[in-house]
Amino acid sequence: MLRANYFDGRSTRIYAVELSMVSDDLVVRGENFDFKFPFSQVQVDERLGRAARRLRFNGGAFCEVSDLVGLDGLLAMTPHQEGRIDRMQRRLPTVLVSCLAFMALAIAAYRWGVPWAAALGARRLPASVGKTITTQELKILDGRILLPSKISLERQKALRKQFMSLILPEGGVPNSNLLFRASSLGANAFTLPDGTIVVLDDLITTINNSQQIIAVLSHELGHAHGHHGLQLLLQSSLIGTFWTFYIGDISQLLAAAPVALAQAKYSQELERQADDYGAGLLRGNGMSPQLLADVLKKLTELHPSASKGGYLSSHPSTDERMQHLHFLAAHTSDQ
């Protein structure tokens, strides 16, 4: 005998009943009534946690059963089969496997899916998008973070001439804009979304070697060639969208935080790609990729702390990059 509450579907009145199986019929026995129902016409609710389950009859009437163990005993006497998803939700192995599969999928999407989609998108976007963003960025940076360059105009002209005479691996000359600026950001150069390359004064004065400066510029041309600026922007919006879907219920603010974290890791990968492109470019112009490694060495000696790298830094560790460039340089001399 299994205790249950019977509801007729027409009012909220509770009828305490007892349930049992007699051959193929479900017998519902209450204080004032007693009826049989062919079990094949009874709809049994899927199990959900420890919630009471319902046995539904035609016309909206049902029995609510809180004694889940007792109900299992009753159902064992019937042909009833528990749903597949119900079993998946309850069994520890399937929950663990789902958990691992979910994490594996998330990591794969994060590691390969997002960069792939963003790179594809960056290549497909019209050039005007990159131009608009670059104009906006420069408008914000100029006069605040970036100030007019103090490098002599002849020096700028000479560098620009050398830069423009480079032959790109894919053929043709660079079509990137080259800008010179002063900044407290240190010895650095960076590429904006439309391929414009900004060289900071400190980089030129610190390196003070035209060939090595050209090596840095070929690395930057790698960023321009790969549309890395746009790719990073697209990646941040993809990651942002995912987190809003995943976590948005809990906190909108939270969803913004992981974007910055993800960006750092992605940009390391892009630095490696730019190194490879720069090495190829230098080789194609009769120079050695070793030049880029030399620059890194010089900069490391000046700022030892910058070489540590790690997860949160936007560049891979300098040692790692130098080793890779040595390897590329060794490869060239063989040919």
Partner: peptide
């Protein structure tokens, strides 16, 4: 409310995976 986090976790993760 008689639901528990550990119970709902199983339902959540299985359905999240099926959705993906």
């Amino acid at each position: 409310f008689t639901g528990t986090g550990s119970e709902y976790f199983g339902i959540w993760i299985v359905n999240l995976l099926l959705t993906i």
